[in-house]
Computed example of a mutant assay.
Amino acid sequence: MPSTSFPPLSFATCDLCDAYKNDSTGDFRVLPPVFRDFGAESRFAGTVVTVKCFEDNTLVKAAVDSPGEGRVLVVDGGASLRRALVGGNLGAAAARNGWAGVVVNGCVRDVVELALCQTGIRALAPMPLPTEKRNEGQRDVAVQIQGVWVRPGDWLYADEDGMVVSATALHA
């Protein structure tokens, strides 16, 4: 489900970088190229909702089980490579509930199932081990993803060339 404010397929992150590369306000940020593409949609965009958790995906599940409305869920998993925060069931829930994408600063599992999910899914790596459920974490807080600040309400744009984040909707 595309965002109602900005159609996801009408942008290219390279064009956005060309247009905003001299931004000195900090409103335009580029995420490092460490994320792999796991979902069926390689291009997605939307306003950001954040979850901060470490090896516990309780809040991630709650988020993807709620209406996505074309938004992008950014999960700060502390870059842990020890547990998967999103698997096939959560990927399917994200697609079913209209999330444009899920970006995980951590791992995912059920890679074959995720590839069938009609949503964007980016993460650092696959890891078959699931999380433990401790009901810990925070939602709708500023998170630092690979050294880049991402805040609730920011816009995230992802395509085959990478991901960029902006405090406002962008047009190249």
Rank of each mutant, 00 (worst) to 15 (best):
G120L: 10
W149P: 08
A125T: 10
G77V: 10
I145E: 00
E132I: 13
V102L: 02
V112N: 13
D76E: 09
V111Y: 04
G101E: 06
V112K: 15
A142G: 06
V148C: 04
K133P: 00
N105M: 09
T131F: 04
W99K: 04
L90V: 08
A142I: 10
A79P: 00
D110P: 03
P126R: 13
L116A: 13
L116F: 07
L129V: 15
L129C: 09
A142D: 15
L90K: 07
R134F: 11
I121D: 03
Q138C: 11
L124A: 03
K133G: 08
A142R: 11
E113V: 14
R134V: 07
E113P: 02
R151F: 08
K133Y: 13
A84Q: 01
N97S: 12
P126V: 13
N105C: 13
D76H: 06
R82S: 15
D110G: 09
Q144E: 14
I145D: 01
D76T: 02
P130I: 00
I121L: 12
G87I: 10
A94I: 05
G137H: 07
L114F: 08
G101V: 11
G98F: 06
D110K: 06
G91T: 01
V150F: 05
V72S: 01
P128M: 08
L116S: 12
R139E: 13
Q146Y: 10
R96K: 15
L114A: 07
L129A: 14
L124K: 05
Q118F: 02
A100P: 00
A94V: 09
E132A: 15
V111W: 04
D140W: 02
V103F: 12
W99A: 07
G120W: 09
G70S: 03
A125W: 10
L85E: 00
E136K: 11
N135P: 01
V108E: 08
W99L: 11
V104S: 07
N97R: 14
V75M: 08
V111D: 12
L90D: 09
E113I: 13
T119W: 06
W149T: 15
I121K: 06
A94T: 04
A115H: 07
S80C: 07
Q138M: 12
G120M: 09
A95R: 02
G87P: 03
W149R: 13
V141N: 09
Q118A: 13
V111A: 15
G77M: 10
G88T: 03
R71P: 00
Q146E: 15
A123C: 12
N135G: 10
G147W: 09
G91S: 05
T131R: 06
G77Q: 05
P130M: 04
A100N: 01
